[in-house]
Amino acid sequence: MKEEIRILFTAIMFYTRIPCPSWVDHNEHYISRSIRYFPLIGWLVGAVVAVSFLLGDWLISPLTGIVFSLIASVLMTGAFHEDGFADVCDGFGGGWTKEKILEIMKDSRVGTYGVVGLALIFLLKISLLLQLVSLVGEFVLLATFVGAHAVSRFIASTVVFTHPYVRDNDNSKAKPVARQSGKFNLILAGVFGVLPVILLSLMTENYSLLGTIPLLYLVKMGLARYFTKWIGGYTGDCLGAVQQVTETAFYLFLLVIWKFTL
């Protein structure tokens, strides 16, 4: 039990900016196993995002609440996944060989492709969330936040089990995660990732929402296939990009399903 608690705290430390006890460190043994709690971190982030939306909505308007929710997500994770998404935009947008793509993604500076990519994905999230709150109301949107952050992290974590890791240098922050394997980690991550979507379906009595899970997996497979074509697998930045894209796709798929089934 103590070891499992340490793995959980390691996940919180690795995937968020939440302060952890001093005895939690960047031990690769625990980081590699912490992926099982990656979707559970989505529950935590989603809950804070939901509260932030309520605050902004109560103070000013739903649009302000949505912006507050995005700010809360970035602050909670230290823009961990957004940074990966921006690096992927820069790398695949500006590189034409595997070596060049990896070199660009390794650069800490953000280029034009990264800035444009972040701007567009944030605008798309705002647009979709505005439509969702007008269509299904605030209460359902709160549950949607938790579901989006949990299932997108689960989908991102499956890349580790289905595709090869391509960086060989020891400086990569994602290397300990990439080394992990084991069906137990995948199953537990799946439970934490899928359960909020199941609960959302039960709460709204719209079981068509469960169809978002295979759709998101198809999105992931498309992205992973693209990554593999150009660089032979994935990097930590690619995982961040998959999380961001599938989170946004979840809002999109929900909106389409609710629009035609409500």
Rank of each mutant, 00 (worst) to 15 (best):
Y251M: 04
P62M: 04
Y30P: 01
W96T: 10
F154V: 04
L218M: 15
P176R: 00
F154Y: 15
F184G: 07
S181R: 10
L199P: 10
H81S: 02
G94E: 05
K183T: 12
P196L: 05
R33T: 03
I231L: 03
T64Q: 04
F122V: 15
G65A: 05
I31H: 02
R153C: 07
D237G: 08
L120Y: 12
D168G: 11
R167S: 11
R179F: 03
H29A: 14
L223D: 02
G114A: 10
F145A: 09
E99T: 12
L223S: 05
I198C: 15
T64I: 15
E138R: 15
R36P: 00
V110F: 10
D170G: 08
L223F: 11
G232W: 09
G114T: 00
R6M: 11
Y251I: 02
N171K: 14
D168F: 14
S181C: 06
P21D: 05
F184C: 11
R179G: 06
L188T: 12
Y217Q: 07
E4G: 01
W43C: 06
F227N: 05
G94C: 10
F38C: 03
V116G: 01
D237A: 09
L223I: 10
L63H: 06
G93M: 10
W258N: 05
T144A: 14
L120P: 09
L40E: 06
L55N: 05
D170A: 12
E138H: 13
L209Q: 01
R225L: 07
G232V: 03
F184D: 13
T212G: 08
W258K: 03
K259D: 13
L255K: 00
L142A: 14
V146P: 04
A50F: 02
A156R: 00
Q243K: 14
R153P: 06
I7L: 06
A178W: 03
A178Q: 06
T144R: 02
S22D: 13
P176D: 03
E4D: 13
T10H: 11
G193P: 02
L63I: 13
C89W: 01
T77C: 05
V146S: 07
V110Y: 04
I126W: 06
L102C: 09
I101G: 01
I5A: 12
I126S: 00
V116P: 10
F145L: 08
W43A: 03
N206T: 06
F260Y: 12
L255C: 03
E138W: 08
A86T: 11
I121V: 15
L223P: 00
V116L: 14
S152P: 03
A79G: 05
F192P: 04
I198D: 08
V191E: 08
S73M: 10
G232Q: 08
T10N: 07
R225V: 01
W258G: 06
V45F: 03
F14P: 00
L102P: 08
A174D: 01
I5P: 00
I231D: 00
I12H: 08
L255N: 08
T162W: 12
T204V: 12
Y226D: 08
A148C: 13
L130M: 15
V136C: 07
I231G: 00
V166S: 09
T228H: 12
